[in-house]
Computed example of a mutant assay.
Amino acid sequence: MVKIAIVLGSTRPGRSGEAVARWVYDLATKRNDAQFELVDIADYNLPLLDEPVPPSMGQYSKDHTRRWAAKVAEFDGYVFVTPEYNHGLSGALKNALDYVYAEWNNKAAGFVGYGSAGGTRAVEQLRLVMAELQVATVRSQVALSLFADFENFSVFRPSSHHEQPLTMMLDQLISWSQAMKSTRERENLEQYRS
């Protein structure tokens, strides 16, 4: 069974993302075709990228980096719960993505965005970053509006119609995560034989 991280992509005090990530987690864990874990980047206290060697070299020198790398490596796929700040993803999420490299490779990702325009522009930026990290992204995504899905722009009250796109995204993500897991296993076998 594949293991999927639901990554909370905001560290802002009073963030709305915590309620959104919990909603995703609660609906996802009703399924029996994958294991889900909520991963809060705030728990890793990642300073602005402070590794002296590029992540693609895999030479992590800081304890916080090694801890984050170990957590990222545990999963076959990811649901990124992302706010949209100034038409883009949060700096904290971008920083967390940039910390490691190989641990992301040949996996799959889906997205739940929230913001004034449903977080769609943040998700589009994330798709570009995922491509460079060699993460396959699924087409379906969830776009939550600060105007329609948050009471007074702060209390998360999602419309029930969002459950269908979330289910579609998770269906695709689990399928792609299984396929990418097979790819990683095949590559590991080939490396072992050579």
Rank of each mutant, 00 (worst) to 15 (best):
D171C: 06
G77Y: 02
E74L: 00
L48C: 10
N32Y: 03
D50T: 09
S116A: 13
T11L: 05
T137Q: 13
L126C: 07
A70Y: 07
F75D: 00
N86E: 13
R184N: 09
V123K: 04
E187F: 11
H161Q: 08
V2W: 03
V138R: 07
I174E: 02
Y114A: 02
Y25M: 12
E18N: 14
Y25K: 11
A42D: 08
Q191H: 12
G91L: 08
Q59K: 14
V39C: 09
D43C: 06
N95L: 01
T167E: 06
M168P: 00
G77F: 02
V100H: 04
R67W: 12
E132Y: 15
N86Q: 12
K107S: 03
Q172V: 09
Q134S: 15
L144G: 00
S159W: 10
T167L: 07
W104V: 02
H64I: 05
R22P: 04
V24H: 02
Y114D: 04
Y78I: 03
V138Y: 10
E18F: 13
A131E: 11
R157V: 05
Q125A: 09
W104R: 02
A108C: 12
D40T: 10
A148N: 13
P52C: 13
V155Y: 12
S154Y: 02
N105R: 12
A28C: 04
E185T: 06
L128E: 11
S10I: 12
T65N: 10
F156C: 05
E84A: 10
W68D: 02
E18T: 15
Q164V: 06
Q59R: 15
F153A: 05
E124G: 11
R184I: 07
L48E: 09
Y25D: 10
A148P: 03
T82I: 01
E190I: 12
W104A: 00
F150R: 06
V142M: 05
S56R: 06
E84L: 11
R157N: 10
L189Y: 15
N106L: 14
V20N: 01
A131C: 10
P13F: 06
Q125G: 11
A34L: 04
S90M: 11
L133N: 09
D171L: 05
R186V: 13
E37F: 01
S194A: 11
D63Q: 14
A96D: 05
H162S: 10
V20F: 02
N188C: 09
F111C: 10
R157E: 10
P83Y: 04
E151W: 07
E190M: 13
F36A: 01
F150W: 11
R127I: 08
V155P: 09
D33Q: 07
A73R: 09
E132C: 13
S61A: 12
Q191V: 13
E163M: 09
F153R: 11
L38I: 07
Q164F: 06
G113F: 08
S154W: 07
R31A: 06
E163F: 08
P13C: 09
V72M: 07
R12C: 12
V81I: 10
R67L: 15
G58Y: 13
T167I: 01
A42R: 06
E151L: 08
F111K: 07
G119V: 03
D40R: 11
E151T: 09
